[in-house]
Amino acid sequence: MAPGAVGDPLAAIPFAHGGPVGRGRLRVRPEDFVVEEVLRFAPEGRGEHVYLQVEKVDADTAWVAQRLARAAGMGAARVAWAGLKDRRAVARQWFSVHLPRALPVDWERHAEGRFRVLAETRHRRALRRGGLAGNRFRLVVRELSADPRALAARLGRIAEAGVPNLFGPQRFGQGGSNLEAAAVWFGGGPAPTGRFRRGMVLSAARAHLFNRVAAARIADGSWARLLPGEAVALAGSRSVFAAPQADEALARRCRRGDLHPSGPLWGAGPSLACGACAALEAAVLAPWAAWCRGLEAAGLAHERRALRVLPQGLRWRLEGDALVLRFALPSGAYATALVRELLACPQDACG
C-alpha cells in the first residue's frame, strides 16, 4: 500500500513459512474466537479502584466501558482497560472503575445481554496499558480444507519458529478506514475529531509503518534473526537494548527465543537501531516521511516492538471439518497473525 492509498493492509506482506496450507473460515460465530486476558499482577483486594473481569460477547470494549460507567453513575473517563478486544468474539477482559466508596453497583444493569461480570475485586491503582502479561486464545476455524499432514507440519513449524508479530487487520478499522483517515490527516487534511478516534487513527498509522518494516524483513529472512545495529527486544518484557554488533552469544539467545529483533513504533526521539538495521528502516519508511512527521507532531515517542512472536502451549485438534486451536500470546500480539501463516481465511471472517 502506497502513501495515500487504502486497500488490504496485509495484502502485500509476504509469508514467513511459505504461504497457507489450506483454507477455512474464522469467526463464523462469536464463540469461535475466545480470548482471555492474563493480568501482569494480582489485584490486592483493596483500594479505590474496582476491578471487574467481564465476559463480553459481540460487543466493543468502549461500549462495555460506557455501560459500566452508566451503572456506577459516573463519567466514562473513570473506567479504564488494558487493551481493546475484538468485537466479534467472546472476550474475558478486565476493567477498572475508580470508585473510592464501597457502594453496591448492579454492573450488568445496562448490559443488554452482551456482557456479564465474572469477578469483582479492588486494587490501589487503575488498570493501565501494559497491565497484561498476555492473552489465551481458543479459535475454531470452520469449513476447513487442508491436508492434515501439511497442517500438522505447519503447526509444528509455527510452534518451533514462531510467526511475524504483525498487527492484524483489526487495528486498521473496517475496510482500512483508520488508515484512510491517517492519509487525509498527514496529507494536510483535517485531523480526526474526538480523542478516542484520533488515538485509533494514530495507532493504526504507527502499526502500518511497523508492518511495512516487518514485510521487508520477512522478505529478506531477517524477521527472526538479528541484524548489525539491531534494537533487541527481550522476550517476556518491554525492555529493548541496542546491539551495534550482533555477536554469536546474542544470535544463540535469539535462536532460543530469549530475545527477538524489533521494528519501530514511530514517534519523536532517537531510535535504538543503528547500522544496517537503521538503514533498512530508513529505506522502507522513506516514502512514508509525511506519516512519520505526523506521528512525531502528534506527540508520540519512538518505541520498539518485537518482530517475532512465539506462541505458548500451542495445541490443536480436528473436529469434522473444523480445526480447534489453543495457544497463548504475549500482550499486543495478534492471533490472526498466527492464523495467517497457517490458513487463508476470508477477510471479513478473519478481521
Score class of each variant (00 low, 15 high):
residue 319 E to G: 02
residue 296 E to I: 01
residue 14 P to K: 01
residue 238 R to G: 15
residue 44 E to L: 13
residue 265 L to W: 14
residue 29 R to M: 10
residue 86 D to N: 07
residue 18 G to N: 13
residue 297 A to G: 11
residue 131 G to C: 05
residue 125 R to Y: 08
residue 175 G to T: 07
residue 222 S to P: 09
residue 30 P to V: 13
residue 330 P to C: 12
residue 118 L to N: 12
residue 303 E to R: 14
residue 32 D to M: 05
residue 236 G to K: 05
residue 246 A to E: 11
residue 165 N to V: 08
residue 286 A to W: 05
residue 104 P to E: 02
residue 328 A to C: 06
residue 247 D to N: 15
residue 140 V to G: 02
residue 253 R to C: 10
residue 68 L to S: 03
residue 298 A to R: 01
residue 135 N to L: 03
residue 111 A to F: 14
residue 11 A to D: 12
residue 73 G to I: 03
residue 30 P to A: 14
residue 230 E to D: 12
residue 126 A to D: 10
residue 308 R to D: 07
residue 139 L to M: 06
residue 346 P to I: 01
residue 21 V to F: 02
residue 130 G to E: 10
residue 116 R to H: 12
residue 339 V to P: 11
residue 304 R to A: 14
residue 268 A to E: 15
residue 20 P to D: 07
residue 201 V to F: 07
residue 149 R to G: 09
residue 3 P to I: 08
residue 50 V to P: 00
residue 144 L to H: 00
residue 332 G to L: 04
residue 165 N to F: 06
residue 294 G to R: 01
residue 101 R to M: 12
residue 45 G to K: 02
residue 257 G to H: 07
residue 7 G to F: 06
residue 243 A to G: 06
residue 132 L to I: 00
residue 267 G to S: 11
residue 256 R to P: 01
residue 271 S to D: 11
residue 160 E to R: 15
residue 239 S to H: 13
residue 130 G to P: 11
residue 112 E to H: 15
residue 130 G to C: 11
residue 28 V to I: 02
residue 205 A to M: 13
residue 170 Q to M: 03
residue 219 A to S: 13
residue 303 E to I: 02
residue 151 L to C: 07
residue 110 H to N: 09
residue 287 P to R: 09
residue 251 A to F: 04
residue 186 F to R: 03
residue 335 A to Y: 09
residue 298 A to K: 02
residue 270 P to W: 01
residue 116 R to M: 04
